[in-house]
Every structure is written in structure tokens, then in C-alpha cells.
Computed example of a mutant assay.
Amino acid sequence: MVDDYDFHGTHPAAPRPDAVPVRWTPVQQRPGAARVRAYTCECLSLVFEQCMAGGQGFIRRYDRSVLPWGIAESPRVRVVDAIALWRQLMNGEAR
């Protein structure tokens, strides 16, 4: 057994110069809980979560470089479109 104490999660790629901007908006209180399907590593100051709620998908962004943390969400869209946005963020194609 290998002793591996480096338990890092996914790190998104740095945004490319031609990265598509995401329309981040403040979190709005909505009924029902969101399910987190994927997330980025907690060691970074900018953390993303891929979420689903009410049959829609969206990305939640936590900016932990400021206090209180800045929390914003992408528009709620079809799940397949939210998965595509997640891939874009992870590949540096969106910011």
C-alpha cells in the first residue's frame, strides 16, 4: 500500500485568453436543496460546484479570497448544458 497524503481534488485549468465569460449572479434563495454532483479542490481560493436542483443544472462559485466569501451562480439551464459549462470551466474555456 502506498502512503499518499496528497488528497487534492480536481483543479480547473487557468482561463484561456479567449475564454467565454459566464454571467455570474448572486445566489437567490429558492425552495428545495441543490445536489452537488462535482466540485473542485478545496485548496484553491476559487472553488466551483456543479449542482442540480428542480430538474435544472448550474454552477456555484465560491470566491474565498474575500471576507465574507463571494458566492455566485451561473444561470440555471438544462442539465446537459450545465455539464457542458462545467467541462468548459475545467478546461479553461470559460471564466
Rank of each mutant, 00 (worst) to 15 (best):
R30M: 15
H11L: 10
A38G: 06
A38H: 10
R16H: 10
V80R: 00
P17A: 14
C41V: 02
P15R: 07
A72G: 03
E73M: 00
D18E: 12
R64T: 05
Q56F: 00
S74P: 05
R16N: 04
W86N: 05
G32E: 09
D63F: 05
V66M: 04
R76F: 11
G32M: 07
I71G: 07
A14R: 13
E73R: 02
Y62T: 07
P26A: 12
E49H: 15
W86H: 02
G57T: 01
P68V: 10
G92Y: 04
Q88L: 00
V79G: 04
E93K: 08
E93D: 15
V20F: 02
T40N: 07
C51S: 02
P68E: 10
I59H: 01
V36P: 06
R37E: 00
G57A: 02
G70P: 02
D3A: 12
G92H: 05
L67G: 05
N91M: 09
C51F: 03
P31L: 08
A94S: 12
D3K: 05
Y39E: 12
P15K: 07
T10D: 11
A82C: 06
V27Y: 13
A53I: 10
V80T: 08
S65D: 14
G54S: 11
P68M: 11
V22Q: 10
H11I: 11
P68S: 09
S45N: 06
W86D: 09
D63K: 06
F48W: 12
T25V: 09
R23N: 00
E42T: 11
C41T: 15
V2T: 15
V27G: 07
D63P: 04
Q88D: 11
I59P: 01
G32A: 12
D3Q: 08
M90G: 09
S74T: 03
P31Q: 09
E93V: 01
P68I: 09
R16F: 00
P26F: 11
V22K: 12
R35S: 14
A53M: 12
R35W: 12
P26M: 09
L67V: 13
A82S: 15
V80A: 14
I83K: 08
V36R: 15
F58Y: 15
H11K: 15
W69D: 13
V47I: 14
T10Q: 13
R61C: 09
F58T: 01
L44Y: 09
V77F: 06
V27A: 06
A72I: 01
W69G: 02
R95I: 00
P15Q: 09
R61G: 02
Q50K: 06
R78D: 13
G9C: 10
L46S: 04
V2S: 14
Y39C: 04
C41R: 04
R87W: 01
W86A: 01
V27S: 06
